[in-house]
């Protein structure tokens, strides 16, 4: 099971047939395993990795540090829920260190993101402070370098 996930995490394109060959399993076994992982919410979905900078889609990404007062009896989870329910929020993590929640937000413009922070996040009762950091350029994501040259420079035949 772990091996299927490892392979898919590097290349979600792999077919059941390919996985079966690589793992010495039957296709039925692979299918059953994948279905089970979906059911158990271990495998949540497949998404392509896109370098949006090469498209004409205009949008910005920001990472926002939030300091929070945890709620009695509910810790950070309740606040987190109120935040991740916004569709603009693409990722939300509870952090150790000098702030509590890391919020990744996407918007069409910097202004839109800034307003979202100012109007939705900052006024929340338990939010003590916010710090917004805009992403200027993505070099690497999910272990993939965006501009890597993949030319095979080996000699074509060696013994």
């Amino acid at each position: 099971m772990k091996e299927i996930l490892e392979l898919l995490s590097k290349n979600a394109d792999l077919t059941v047939q390919q996985l079966a060959v690589m793992l010495d399993m039957t296709e039925d076994e692979v299918n059953a395993c994948i279905e089970k992982m979906k059911k158990d919410k271990v495998l949540l979905g497949y998404k392509p990795l896109i370098n949006w900078d090469k498209t004409d889609r205009e949008f910005v990404t920001a990472m926002i540090e939030l300091r929070i007062t945890p709620q009695r009896g509910e810790g950070f989870d309740k606040v987190a829920e109120r935040i991740y329910k916004y569709p603009q929020v693409k990722a939300l993590y509870l952090m150790s260190g000098s702030y509590d929640l890391s919020v990744t937000i996407e918007g069409h413009t910097m202004k839109e993101v800034a307003l979202f922070v100012a109007e939705k996040l900052a006024p929340m009762e338990s939010v003590i402070s916010t710090a917004t950091h805009f992403v200027l350029k993505k070099y690497k994501q999910e272990g993939v370098v965006f501009e890597e040259d993949e030319v095979d420079t080996r000699q074509v035949i060696t013994l």
Binding site: R154, Q155, V156, T158
Partner: peptide, 11 residues
Amino acid sequence: DAISLGVGEPD
């Protein structure tokens, strides 16, 4: 456009 399976070294 040839593809090689001819090398004796890691990729």
